[in-house]
Structures are given as structure tokens and as C-alpha cells.
Simulated assay, not measured.
Amino acid sequence: MSDRSGIFAGEDPFAIAQGWLSEAEKIEINDPNAIALASVDADGLPNVRMVLLKEIEAQSAPSGGAFVFYTNYGSAKGVEIEQAGKAAFVMHWKSLRRQIRVRGLTSREEGPQADAYYTSRSLKSRLGAWASDQSQPLASRTALMAEVAKVTATHGPNPKRPPFWGGIRITPLEIEFWADGAFRLHDRFRWRRPDPNSAWEILRLNP
């Protein structure tokens, strides 16, 4: 597309996304990798929450390009995503006046990649993953800290990744790049494909 230049240039949407994130990491004050993750429950009622995006896999990767975050599979989002097999998110940077919207299919990442990320976390975060029955009712903060002490004694200073905790990979069917424009005449480009093995269709959208 002739007018897709500048910050929108390139044929690999994952490379564009990584480039935008890298820019945001230099100037965004807090959590430039934060995304608002959307899922639906068994009744079709939407749910949205903030999580941290941990990896943008390149189009040349075995996954063919994807976005990965990590969570407790028993959490509300973990259960909802497992049931639907689909999710969406938006990543917005006020500092850049840009956002990326993604909709796609989901799968678990439970192999060495998940193990490596888990190991990279602080010890307290690793123990917290064991201790928290995420999204379930909690009697008190004291009860949570008692559970942390219990798992610390059980799993020691080098805990393995919990079997109920790991990555969720979103393989996109749609990616939209948005940049603020004067007089609300924003620039929007949507990459869309019917399935992960198909070529992208790229369209400029009205603001």
C-alpha cells in the first residue's frame, strides 16, 4: 500500500509491533508492555483486565508470529480463554499516542519457554505463583502470607514452575495499528487473515 510508510512501514506486523514497544520502553513511565486483555465467560459475558505482555514472537518463529503472556491457568482469564480458544487485547501508549489491537486464537505455552520465563522471575514471584489460588475467594491477607510461608518451606529456594501456571500464546487473525492524527483524523491500518496459515490482507481504515 503506497501510503503505508513511516511508523507503519514493513511487511511483518510483529516487527512493527516490536518496534513500537521498543520505542515505548524508552519513554513510557510504567509498564510499557501492559495490555488490556479481553475474554468471555461461558455465558458470553465479556471480561477485561490488565496483564503484562512478555513476548512478541517473530513471524519467522515456529509459531508464525504471536503474543505471549503468563498466568495461572485456573484463574478466571485462564479458564475463559481455555473454553473459548480465543482472546483479544489492546496495548495503548499515551506517551506515543499509539495503540495496537489484536484478536486471535489461543494456545498454551508449557514447555522450555515457559520454564525459562518462570525461572527469570524473582524468587518471591515464583513462590507467589505456587501460593495464590488466583481469582478464588481469599479469607485474608494473613491467610495468603501463611500459604506463601508454607510453599517456601515445601519448594525451597529454587521452585519448579507450577503445572497450573504457564504461558498463553495469542496467534492473531487481526492486528490493528492506530496512531493519533490532527483533528481526530487518525491513521489506522488493519492486518487481517482468515487463519494463521493465510496471507495478510492489509487495509487502511477510516479514523
Rank of each mutant, 00 (worst) to 15 (best):
G19F: 02
K124C: 13
S132N: 15
L105C: 02
T171P: 00
Y117W: 11
A38G: 10
G104D: 05
W191R: 01
Q136L: 04
L203R: 11
L173C: 02
I56V: 02
W20H: 13
V68K: 04
G104Y: 00
S107T: 12
W178K: 03
S63V: 01
H186V: 14
G128H: 11
R4L: 08
T106F: 04
Q99H: 07
E109G: 07
I168P: 00
Y73I: 09
V40P: 09
F183K: 12
P163T: 12
G65K: 01
A182L: 12
R193A: 02
P62C: 07
G64V: 06
E82T: 14
R193P: 00
F14Y: 04
I168R: 01
S132Y: 13
P137M: 08
R192V: 14
E55D: 05
T106G: 05
P62W: 06
T142C: 15
L45Q: 14
W200V: 03
Y70L: 02
A66P: 02
D180K: 06
F8H: 06
H186P: 11
N30T: 10
A143E: 15
R101K: 08
F164H: 15
R169V: 05
R121E: 03
F67V: 00
K150D: 15
E176P: 00
S5M: 13
L123D: 10
A76M: 13
E174N: 03
K77E: 05
V48K: 08
R4E: 09
P162F: 05
A76F: 11
V151K: 06
P196D: 04
E25T: 12
A9D: 10
D12T: 03
S5T: 14
S120L: 10
L203S: 12
G156M: 03
F67M: 01
T142K: 15
A36N: 09
R101W: 03
I100D: 00
T71P: 10
T154Q: 13
L96Y: 11
P13I: 07
L173W: 00
I7L: 15
R161A: 09
P112S: 11
K54E: 00
V148N: 15
R161M: 10
D133P: 08
E28F: 07
G104L: 01
I100H: 00
A38M: 01
K124P: 10
S60T: 11
E174A: 05
P32R: 06
R121S: 04
D41M: 04
H186Y: 12
P157A: 14
Q113F: 10
L205Y: 06
G64S: 04
R101F: 05
I81V: 10
Q59T: 08
G64F: 04
P159H: 07
E174Y: 01
Y118S: 05
P13A: 10
S140R: 13
S95K: 08
L105Y: 00
N33H: 08
